[in-house]
C-alpha cells in the first residue's frame, strides 16, 4: 500500500534566505504514529505548515493520500487536521461555535452527535457555551484539538500539543491519540518531550537544520536504549582487563581506575552477579558502583550534536 503521506525532496527557503527545509524525504504509512523530534528551529513547524498549505514550499513535492498538497490542495487538505503550536483562537467566540466553524470550513454538514462526543472526550462539554477567553490555557489547547478533529481527518498533525500543559491533559491527549490510532488515523506529532515519543509513537524521526537525520522504529531505538552500562570503580587501578574477566564485555575507563561493563537489560541474565563474584575472586577491590542508561534523549542529543559539528 502506498504511504498516506509522501514527502520528496521538499525544500523551503524563507524570504530572508533562511533555509528551513533542505530537501526532506519522508514516507508515513497509514495508521502509524510518527514522533518528529528536533531542537528549536529545526524545521518541524515549517514541515507541517508546508504540508497543511500554510507555507508554500520552494521546491519538492508532498502528497497526502496520493493528492499533491499544492495542486490537489482541496483533496489533500480535506484529509488533514492540524493542532498548531501556538494557541490561536478567537477570544470572544463560544467553544461550540469555533469548533463548528472548522467543520464548516472543511465543507462538512454540522454534526451535533459528533460534536458532543468529541467535546465530552476532551472534557469540554461543560464549557461548550463558554467564551474562549474564559478558559484556562489547558482548556484552550483542548479546544484546538477538538477543532482539528471535528472534520474527521485521516491525518492529524499535532505540533507540540503538550507544550506547557499539565499532566492530566497530557494523559487525556494520549488517550485521544490511542483512540484515533484504533480508528486508523495517521498521526504526526512534534514534541520536545522524549517521554511522549516513547509513550505513543510507532516510529521516531529526528530533524535538525532542515534535514531528517534518522527515522527508526521506536522499538529498535528502545532496544538500543536497552543497553546499560555498569561502572565499577577500583581501589587500585589496573593496566588491562584481568585475564580472569576476559570473558565479559569489559572496558577500561578513567586510566584504569574503573571498569565499564555493558549489558542488555532485556536479557534473561545480565551477568552482573557472576561478574561481581568473579571480580572478588580475582582479588579486585571495588570502591563504588554506578549504572548509566542511554535514553532516547541522549541518542537524540548526540545525533543533533553530530549534525551541528
Amino acid at each position: 500500500m502506498a504511504p498516506i503521506l509522501q514527502v520528496k525532496n521538499l525544500k523551503k527557503t524563507y524570504e530572508g534566505g533562511f533555509e528551513a527545509l533542505k530537501g526532506v524525504n519522508l514516507d508515513i504509512e497509514e495508521g502509524e504514529i510518527l514522533a518528529l523530534l528536533g531542537p528549536n528551529g529545526a524545521g518541524k513547524t515549517t514541515l507541517i505548515s508546508t504540508l497543511c498549505g500554510i507555507t508554500i514550499p520552494t521546491s519538492g513535492q508532498a502528497t497526502v493520500g496520493g493528492y499533491d498538497v499544492q495542486h490537489d490542495y482541496r483533496a489533500a487538505r480535506g484529509m488533514i487536521g492540524l493542532v498548531p503550536q501556538d494557541i490561536s483562537l478567537e477570544p470572544f467566540e463560544k467553544v461550540k461555535n469555533t469548533v463548528g466553524l472548522t467543520r464548516g470550513l472543511f465543507g462538512k454538514r454540522r454534526d451535533d452527535a459528533l460534536m458532543e462526543r468529541l467535546l465530552k472526550q476532551l472534557s469540554l462539554w461543560d464549557k461548550r457555551d463558554s467564551k474562549v477567553n474564559e478558559l484556562s490555557g489547558g482548556m484552550k489547547r483542548r479546544v484546538l484539538i477538538a477543532k482539528a478533529l471535528i472534520h474527521e481527518p485521516r491525518v492529524l498533525f499535532l505540533d507540540e500539543p503538550t507544550a506547557g500543559v499539565d499532566v492530566e491533559l497530557r494523559k487525556d491527549m494520549w488517550e485521544v491519540v490511542a483512540d484515533l490510532k484504533k480508528q486508523g488515523v495517521t498521526i504526526i506529532l512534534t514534541t520536545h518531550y522524549i517521554e511522549e515519543a516513547e509513550a505513543i509513537a510507532d516510529r521516531v524521526a529526528v530533524i535538525s537544520h532542515g534535514e531528517i537525520l534518522l527515522i527508526e522504529d521506536k522499538d529498535k531505538l528502545m532496544s538500543r536504549m536497552g543497553r546499560k552500562q555498569l561502572k565499577i570503580e577500583l581501589r587500585e587501578p589496573v593496566s588491562e582487563v584481568p585475564d580472569a574477566l576476559k570473558g565479559y564485555d569489559l572496558e577500561l575507563a578513567d586510566d584504569g581506575a574503573a571498569l565499564v561493563y555493558t549489558y542488555d537489560t532485556h536479557a534473561d541474565r545480565t551477568g552482573i552477579t557472576r561478574l561481581l563474584a568473579d571480580l572478588s575472586a580475582a582479588g579486585i577491590v571495588m570502591r563504588d558502583l554506578s549504572t548509566r542508561q542511554d535514553s532516547l534523549e541522549q541518542i537524540f542529543v548526540s545525533l543533533v550534536k553530530e549534525d551541528a559539528a
Binding site: C52, I54, L89, L105, F106, G107
Partner: peptide, 12 residues
C-alpha cells in the same frame, strides 16, 4: 491573533 491558519489550511 493567528487564527488565519485555519482558513489557510482549509480546503477552500
Amino acid at each position: 491573533i493567528g487564527t488565519i491558519y485555519e482558513v489557510l489550511s482549509a480546503p477552500v
